[in-house]
Simulated assay, not measured.
Amino acid sequence: MKPIYSLGYTFSVKSFAFILNYIVVSSLILKEYGSFSLIFSTLNSIIVVASLGLLYSANIFTSKWIGRNNKYIFNYFKFSFYLMTFLSLLSSIAIFYIYGYFFSVFFAILIFSASTLLEGFFYGVGEIKRLFIYGALNLALSLILSFLLVKNKGLDGAMLSLAFSRFLLFIFQLKYFFVKIESDGLFGVRYLKAIILFYKKYNIPLLISALIATPVVTLVIYMLSIRKGLEAVAIFSWCYQIYLLGMFVPTALGTYYLSVLNRKDHNSKLMVMKKITKFNLLVSVIAILFLLILSKFILKLGHIESFEESYKVYYAFLLCMLFYSLNLGYLSFWSSVGKNTFYLKMQVLWSALLVIFVLIFVGELGALAIPIGMAAGFIAQYLIQNRVIGRY
């Protein structure tokens, strides 16, 4: 049942972003939705930095030390929380000078990052069912609050929605964390040298990998907005949200796959990895067919059905889903064998291909250049990783 609960939890988290985007695109004009998309993408990039690659590394750390040295775990999480608070503050000051938001931005970055940190803990101790229940309760409250805020306060309401979208979830997570792990005091960090060494081996490669990928998407969105305007950004953003929603099953299981791979020996890891790739591909094909059938309805839902470009971007993202599904399992595999630096190289390759392609073709293709560039990067990643793992 754990894979089902993992899917359910990730759905509750991912679906909020999709539904909030729908509320905003339905309530505001298309250019305002384009502005929200830029801010939303910028925040996601910052959250990647502030969360420090902890979804996977906290999972590994917790599963390794739970029951053996709980004080070590507490100090690892305490050190991580201090660091992400500092990064959230710096980022919020920078965002304030660009967009004029501070409180909602700081709160959103810190709560999202801290919740991601605690997700890793829940996966590490195997409490995925409990995490799913917390996520479902949080989603129900967040949707009601978001609808009221956006309807009454427009773009400002959307920003406040982001700030409070994981607050209840974080409170639930934190309460259970202190049930399982006894406090070792709020000030000072013990085992600091060992924690820093762990960060160097696990957190930093994962952080840089994510830091390359997510902010690069934000970068190309800004490139698109400069060359083609906010309406092109709005078209891209709605299709991108559908793409993310369509991939939620394989991405949701990534952390669960890591938990499984951590318990396997070398030969078993390779066998499990093959099964993961086949499953991800099968699920993605089913999702692609489903989204293909509903294409006109989905584009109409996002109020972009009158733009000819939107259909091309939408279909390109469906193709992108296919190639992305081939690569998803590799993050869990390389993390489980301590080869995060190799995955980092693959992310550099993907990002470079995407930026180069968009830089060359965005003027001619507009928003279509982004999913095509993403797909080209995924193909290159798969060809290399499939060859390397065959010799592993």
Results as ranks from 00 to 15, higher is better:
354 L>Y: 13
384 I>L: 14
377 G>W: 09
108 A>Q: 07
60 I>N: 14
8 G>N: 07
145 L>G: 03
162 L>H: 06
99 Y>K: 05
39 I>Y: 15
187 F>H: 02
380 A>F: 11
166 R>H: 15
94 A>C: 04
83 L>P: 01
386 N>C: 03
40 F>M: 05
230 L>R: 08
71 K>Y: 14
355 V>H: 08
293 I>K: 07
171 I>F: 13
149 L>R: 03
187 F>Q: 02
381 Q>K: 10
214 T>K: 01
277 T>C: 01
199 Y>C: 08
123 Y>C: 00
206 L>S: 14
57 S>K: 04
83 L>W: 08
156 D>R: 01
153 K>C: 08
68 R>G: 10
134 Y>Q: 05
306 S>T: 06
296 K>M: 02
34 G>Q: 06
54 L>G: 07
203 N>Q: 06
320 C>P: 00
269 K>W: 14
354 L>R: 09
194 A>P: 00
342 F>D: 09
375 A>I: 02
299 L>I: 05
79 F>Q: 02
278 K>Q: 11
291 L>F: 15
270 L>G: 04
177 F>P: 00
308 E>T: 02
358 V>L: 12
272 V>C: 02
267 N>F: 12
187 F>A: 06
173 Q>W: 09
375 A>S: 13
171 I>S: 07
2 K>R: 12
283 V>Q: 10
248 F>T: 03
297 F>K: 03
112 F>D: 14
37 S>Q: 07
288 I>C: 12
25 V>H: 11
233 V>W: 13
185 G>D: 13
250 P>M: 08
127 E>C: 00
137 L>C: 12
59 N>H: 07
273 M>R: 02
41 S>Y: 10
116 T>H: 04
206 L>D: 09
127 E>W: 02
197 L>W: 09
80 S>D: 06
82 Y>C: 02
276 I>A: 05
